[in-house]
Amino acid sequence: MTERFRTVAERAAASFEVQGSQFIGHVAPAETVDAAEAFVDEIRADYADATHNVPAYRVRASPFREYSSDDAEPSGSAGKPALNVLQQREIENVAAVVTRYYGGTNLGVGGLARAYSRAVKEGVDAAGVVESVPHERFDITVEYDDSGSVRGLLESADVEFTADYGAEVTFAVRVPTAEGSELRDRVRSATSGRADIDVDV
């Protein structure tokens, strides 16, 4: 999967009221199912006093993963409308959670569906939609003697990375998938094969 895809630029939230019920649409980028579920768990913990926290996400995993839940709202009134917005906007690697504080008036299935979809739409609008390319992550572990050349290579390749200087040096690298294999070959060449490369799958 090397083609470009649409995702959200950053975390954001949008809130509004419908007949006394408050809705908050939380949206965040999520590159993995674990990241999506961690975001859902975080919002549920932060808004534990809410009546409902309805999740939906779409992640470019292998296979592609889509998920939604009504979180005790009437069947089909919350999770599916939330997920539908992400599908219609063709946004991937994204997680959304709609928090609802019940205001005393039942909105009915149609009213709920409109409110939950609106919350995701406004959350996505607040986050902004961008085009991205698939990325992969891998770790490079080297002795200190090789760390300078590896760091210089990563900087010249203009990829995202962090460095952890322990007993050895470990570089955590995030790179467009289309460039990953070539970059790993260059690291092996620069270190005469001494680099230990661990690709996240």
Rank of each mutant, 00 (worst) to 15 (best):
T2S: 10
V130M: 01
R60N: 14
E92T: 12
S15G: 06
G20Y: 00
P176C: 11
R4P: 09
G111L: 01
A78W: 05
T7Q: 06
A172C: 07
L83C: 09
A126L: 04
F138R: 05
A56S: 13
A56L: 03
R151A: 12
F138H: 10
P74I: 11
D146G: 02
D71Q: 10
V120K: 05
R174N: 06
T162S: 15
R58N: 07
D145N: 10
Y102R: 00
Y47T: 02
G110E: 09
A45Y: 01
V133R: 08
G103C: 05
R4E: 11
R114H: 12
A61R: 07
A13K: 11
V159A: 13
S149V: 14
G104A: 04
T141Q: 09
V59H: 09
E31C: 01
L154T: 05
A14F: 04
P63N: 11
E37P: 05
V54A: 08
A157C: 09
I43H: 03
R186T: 07
Q88A: 14
A115Y: 07
E131V: 08
A30I: 03
R137L: 10
R6S: 15
Y116A: 07
A115K: 04
A50N: 08
T177K: 05
E10S: 15
G103I: 02
A96D: 00
S189W: 00
F23Q: 05
S68A: 11
R4G: 14
N53Q: 14
R194S: 15
V175S: 10
F64H: 15
E182W: 09
R60C: 11
G108P: 01
S192W: 02
D146V: 02
N53Y: 03
I43S: 05
S75W: 01
P176L: 12
P29I: 04
P74W: 09
Y67K: 14
A45W: 01
Y67L: 13
F171D: 03
V187L: 05
A167Y: 08
Q87R: 14
A167P: 01
D196H: 09
D125T: 14
V130K: 08
A61W: 02
N84L: 01
L107S: 11
A115F: 03
V199Y: 01
G180I: 02
S181D: 15
S156R: 15
E73I: 09
S68F: 13
S156E: 13
E122T: 14
A48V: 08
A78K: 04
V18Q: 05
Q87N: 12
V54K: 03
H135D: 11
V169S: 01
D200A: 15
V129Y: 03
P63Y: 10
